[in-house]
């Protein structure tokens, strides 16, 4: 192999950069703690199972969005046969009243910033 020294140095540098977050938390002891979202107290059941909502809520919301805006369809029938109005503000946020207590908890932890909130509001009208 040509330029073994250069290549190995480069690879080492990349490796250090990729693992930097681990070194950082190890050195400072300040790992970001996982924040558990606050679940609504009034309701026990979401639109779909907890696992499904965890994995695929974004897909569900995308389907709702397209159905409501583009197809003028407004009712969703969940896997257990319950009917819901497809609306982020009027259905989801009816139980999850505060976006900051629920949505933002995980999104912030994951470094996600979905553009839902650029237009939609939670029930309190908090921007």
């Amino acid at each position: 192999m040509y330029d073994t020294g250069k290549i190995m140095t480069g690879l080492a540098a990349v490796l250090v950069m990729l693992t930097l977050p681990f070194w950082y938390s190890a050195a400072t002891g300040k790992a970001v703690e996982k924040h558990d979202p606050v679940l609504p107290k009034t309701e026990k059941k979401c639109v779909e199972s907890r696992q499904y909502m965890r994995d695929s809520h974004m897909d569900l919301l995308n389907r709702w969005r397209d159905a409501v805006v583009r197809e003028d369809r407004h009712t969703y029938v969940s896997q257990d046969g319950t009917r819901y109005e497809m609306s982020l503000t009027n259905t989801c946020m009816k139980c999850h009243v505060e976006r900051a207590q629920f949505c933002d908890k995980c999104h912030t932890y994951m470094g996600e910033s979905p553009f839902c909130w650029d237009c939609h509001l939670d029930r309190k009208g908090v921007l």
Partner: peptide
């Protein structure tokens, strides 16, 4: 991707 319920 998984599939959920249906749009009525």
């Amino acid at each position: 991707r998984t599939v959920g319920g249906a749009v009525s």
